[in-house]
């Protein structure tokens, strides 16, 4: 009897060890990757400073192309999602707030949910899915097809030529898209509120103007900047690490997207906690 009990304890200890071990390994793996990505960022910054006067015309052209692809071409999608999300928040808001008789805090709810949290996060998700994946795939293909090597033999540092326009382009695009998302989704919300519950449009607008303060704008900008940088950096990092086999591209892209998503949520929580707690 005592022996059986001892065996069960040993088994439980073994499983506990296995679970904590794999959790620890998973955590360490993520931590190493994060440190590696930070290292990649530092190297990119150093390279940018070193070659700041080189190839400016060419870089400007690539930067504009990146803005067009990430920013301009995703406007339609962002517009649709923003309208739907704005309407959804207002529908849920009205349903819940009517029960407690505080329909007048609708503008406050819109500010909190859309401007502070959902807007930046959803825009980051859309940009990750659309442009982040494209960047990771492009870098992956360039690595596999030895195009990176070709660039190096042209005396061009790929970290400068490929990374800088994408980093700046995606960051600028994300900042603009978040502003656009917030405007469209609040407009969508107002339209739904006006149509469903006959709340005067201008009353909602003046409530909103009162609710949005400087901190919200700063937080929105900080989030937009951090998300843009994170998406471009993580996707390029994984693209460059593709190796030599073409079969490495899909897993690397999936890793890039998952990492982007996790990091964006993590930074979102961190920034919100820093500013609002």
């Amino acid at each position: 009897m005592r022996y059986a009990f001892f065996e069960i304890v040993m088994q439980a200890a073994h499983y506990f060890h296995m679970v904590t071990g794999s959790c620890g390994r998973w955590f360490l793996q993520k931590l190493y990757r994060l440190v590696d990505i930070l290292g990649f960022f530092v190297v990119c910054l150093k390279t940018t400073l070193r070659y700041r006067h080189t190839g400016q015309r060419l870089m400007a052209r690539t930067f504009i192309q990146q803005i067009y692809f990430t920013g301009v071409q995703s406007l339609e999608l962002i517009c649709l999602i923003a309208l739907l999300v704005g309407g959804l928040v207002v529908i849920q808001g009205i349903a819940q707030l009517t029960r407690v008789g505080s329909r007048n805090v609708l503008a406050s709810l819109l500010t909190v949910v859309i401007i502070r949290e959902v807007g930046p996060l959803l825009t980051a998700v859309v940009v990750t899915l659309r442009s982040g994946s494209a960047i990771a795939i492009e870098m992956g293909y360039m690595t596999v097809l030895r195009e990176i090597e070709s660039l190096e033999m042209q005396g061009i540092d790929p970290l400068h030529f490929l990374t800088l326009p994408r980093l700046v382009g995606v960051t600028v695009s994300v900042i603009c898209l978040i502003v656009f998302f917030n405007i469209v989704s609040i407009f969508g919300g107002f339209v739904v509120a006006w149509t469903l519950v006959d709340v005067p449009f201008w009353a909602l607008f003046s409530d909103l103007a009162r609710e949005v303060n400087g901190v919200d704008i700063i937080v929105g900008s900080v989030k937009a900047f951090v998300f843009g940088l994170t998406i471009a950096l993580v996707c390029m990092y994984h693209g460059f690490r593709t190796g030599e086999a073409i079969t490495n591209i899909p897993p690397q892209v999936s890793r890039a997207l998952v990492d982007c998503f996790i990091l964006c949520i993590f930074f979102n929580v961190l920034i919100s906690a820093l500013f609002y707690l």
Binding site: G55, Y141, R146, F161
Partner: peptide, 24 residues
């Protein structure tokens, strides 16, 4: 196995170095 950059035209591929290094 040296390759050209696949998303650039032949002209851009060949003149890339000039555009980058010589600011043409």
């Amino acid at each position: 196995e040296t390759s050209l950059i696949s998303n650039m035209t032949i002209l851009d591929n060949i003149s890339l170095g000039l555009q980058y290094h010589e600011e043409m």
